[in-house]
Design a protein around this nucleic acid. Structure first.
Lengths: 337, 337
DNA sequence: CTGAAAGCGCTAACAT
DNA sequence: ATGTTAGCGCTTTCAG
C-alpha cells in the first residue's frame, strides 16, 4: 500500500505538505504542489480512509437507512436512493446502506463510521427518532413525524398534492371521486406520507363539498381490482379516481377498461407517482409527480449543511406539480332535458 | 466519545483485554469478561471504525456497485441489494453503495474503505474487470464476462433457464414460440445475462427443431405492445411466448387479451422474473423465478470466503426451477379431419 | 511557505 | 490469563 510518506519522499517534501496539498488548508507554492501531484499520480496514491477518519474525526461517508422490501413503491425507493448517492458523490461523500430493520445500525455507524444519517420512510411515532437525537452526527428525516424533536425533515407535500388533485378534478367538473391509496399495511404503520395524503384529501373534499371515498389498495392485480370494485360499488356514477399506488396503477387502468369505463373519457384517472411510471402506462396518465430523486438530493444537501457547524432545524416540503396527460378530461355537465 | 481506555479503566483491566474480550482472539476468564461487558454496556461503548480499520487493516465493510437506474428490472435489483445487505449484516459487515457510473469509486474504496467488492450487471467485456483485478481486496462478479481473469462469479443460469422454458413449452405441445426479451439498450450493453438467455433460447430451439423468434422489448406499455405485435406478425399461429422483461409483462398479458388471445387457453405465457412479480399479474403467470435475493446472499458468502485467506476462483450458477401457474397449458394436437 | 512531531483509538505482537 | 507497547496512516498544532 502506498502511504502519504511514500508520496512525500518521492516529491521531496514532508508528509504534512502532502496532506495540505490535498486538503488545501494552507497555501502551497505552485512548484511544490506540482511535484506533489505528480508523485501522487505516479504512485496512484489514495489516502487511507480509516487513518483519515481517525485523525480528522470525519469519514466522508453518510448512512442511508432505506426500506428494502418488495413494497408498493420500489421505483420511488430506487429513485430516492439514486438521488442520495449521486448527490453525495458530487460532494465527495460515499453512502453506507442500512436496512430499516437494523435498529442497532444507528448506534453502530454513529461510532465514527459516518458523518450523518438519512432516515427514509419515517413513521408518525418513529422509534428511531429518540435514538438519532442522541447521536453527535446530524440526521435528516424523510417524512414528517408527529414530533421531529429538533431534527430536520424533507418530504413531498402529500397534503398539498391531495388537495391539488381534488381541486383539479373538481374544476374539471368531477364531483364523484375516489382515492385508491397504499396497501393497508402501509397505513397501519402510519408512514407519514400516507397519513398526510389522506388528511389532505379528506380536508379538500370537505372544503369543496365532496364525498371523500377512500379505499386502501393491495399491490397485486386481484387486490387492486377488489379495491376498484369496492369504490365503484359505493358510488355508481364515479367519474374520477385518484391512485396513490404505483403497483396498482396498471391494474386499475385495465380494470376500468374491462368494466366498460373508458379512461380519459368516462372516468378520469389521476396518479401520484414518479413521472416515468405515469408515462409508461397503457394510456399516459395525468399525474402529480413524486419527485423522489429531488427529495434524495435535498436530503443530502440539508445533511451536509449540518455536518460541521450546527444549523437550525428546518422542514422542507416540495410543492406538487400536476402534469396533464391523457387520462383526465373536463366532464360535460349533463344535458338538461 | 467513549474509547476503549474508558472501558478498560471502568472494568479495571487493560485496553488490550477489552480488545480481546471483544474479538475473542484469546481466552478471557469468565469474571473478567463479565466486568468488561458490564462496563461496555454502562458506557454504551462502540469501537471507532476508523481506528479499528487502521490498526487491523480490516473494515468490516464491503462495497456493492449497483445499477441505480429506473431500469426494466427495479425489483430484481432491489431484491438483489436486499440479499447482499442482509447477508452482509448477518456476518457483521456493512455495505457501501456505489453507482455503476462511479468508475473512480473502485480505486477510491480500495484504499482501506472496504474489505471486498461485489459488481452487479457485469458486461461481456466489462471495463471494471481490469481495474478490480489490480486491487488487493477480492471481488465477486454478478454475471459471466467473457474473461473473468481469475475473478469469481455468481449468477442465475440464464442459459439453462431459457432451455428449460423452451423444453417445457415444447413438451406441452407448443411448437410456435417467441421470446420477448429485455430492451434494446440492455442487449447493446451486452449485459451477460441477456446474452446467455438468447444463446440458450436459440440453442434449445435448434435442438428441438423450433423456429427461434426473438424480439427486444421496450419497457413502456406502447413498446411492449409493439414487440408483441411484431412477433404476432411473424407467426400468426403463435401459441406460446416467453417474457424476460418484468416491466413489459403486464402489458404483454393485457395486450394478448385485447387481441382476442386468452392467456392460459389460446396462448401460453412463461415469464422469467421474481416469483412475486409473476404472482401479482392479472393471471398468475407460470414463471422461471429469478432468485435475486439468493444471488445476493451467495455473492456475499463467496466474497467473505475470500477476504483473508485466498481462495480458488469459482463460478456458481444457480439452477432454474419452473413454477407452473395458470398461464401455461398443454396444447391439444389439432383434430385431424 | 514548509517541517517536525504529537496524537487520533485500536490491534497484535511481545512479555510475563 | 492478562498487561505493556509499538505502530497502523493521517491531520494538525506548533515552530520556523
Amino acid at each position: 500500500m502506498t502511504t502519504i510518506d511514500d508520496v512525500a519522499r518521492r516529491a521531496g517534501v514532508s508528509a504534512s505538505t502532502v496532506s495540505y496539498a490535498l486538503s488545501g488548508k494552507r497555501t502551497i507554492s505552485a512548484a511544490t504542489r506540482a511535484r506533489v501531484e505528480k508523485a501522487i499520480a505516479e504512485l496512484g496514491y489514495t489516502p487511507h480512509a480509516g487513518a483519515r477518519a481517525l485523525a480528522s474525526a470525519r469519514t466522508n461517508v453518510l448512512a442511508l437507512m432505506a426500506p428494502l422490501r418488495p413494497d408498493v413503491d420500489v421505483s420511488v425507493i430506487m429513485q430516492f436512493v439514486t438521488g442520495v448517492v449521486t448527490k453525495a458523490r458530487s460532494h465527495d461523500y460515499d453512502v453506507l446502506l442500512l436496512t430499516q430493520e437494523d435498529a442497532a445500525g444507528l448506534s453502530r455507524v454513529a461510532s465514527g463510521m459516518v458523518d450523518g444519517l438519512i432516515l427514509m420512510d419515517v413513521e408518525a411515532k418513529d422509534q428511531r427518532i429518540p435514538v438519532v437525537t442522541q447521536l453527535r452526527q446530524p440526521t435528516i428525516l424523510i417524512g414528517l413525524p408527529e414530533d421531529p424533536q429538533g431534527l430536520s425533515c424533507v418530504d413531498f407535500d402529500f397534503d398539498a398534492a391531495a388537495r391539488l388533485a381534488v381541486r383539479h378534478l373538481h374544476r374539471l367538473g368531477h364531483t364523484s371521486l375516489a382515492l385508491l391509496g397504499p396497501p393497508p399495511a402501509v397505513l397501519e404503520r402510519h408512514t407519514t406520507y400516507a397519513d398526510r395524503l389522506l388528511t389532505g384529501y379528506r380536508a379538500q373534499c370537505a372544503a369543496e363539498g365532496l364525498q371523500p371515498v377512500v379505499e386502501a389498495t393491495g399491490s397485486s392485480h386481484t387486490a387492486a381490482l377488489a379495491a376498484l370494485d369496492a369504490v365503484l360499488a359505493r358510488s355508481e356514477q364515479l367519474t374520477a379516481v385518484v391512485v396513490h399506488n404505483e403497483a396498482a396503477l396498471a391494474s386499475v387502468v385495465s380494470g376500468l377498461h374491462d368494466r366498460g369505463r373508458r379512461v380519459g373519457e368516462d372516468v378520469a384517472v389521476l396518479a401520484l407517482c414518479p413521472a416515468y411510471v405515469a408515462e409508461s402506462q397503457s394510456i399516459p396518465i395525468t399525474s402529480i409527480d413524486i419527485p423522489a430523486l429531488t427529495i434524495g438530493e435535498v436530503a443530502v444537501e440539508m445533511l451536509l449543511e449540518r455536518t460541521g457547524a450546527p444549523h437550525a432545524a428546518e422542514t422542507r416540503l416540495l410543492a406538487p406539480t400536476l402534469h396533464e396527460r391523457q387520462s383526465t378530461f373536463p366532464l360535460e355537465p349533463p344535458v338538461l332535458t
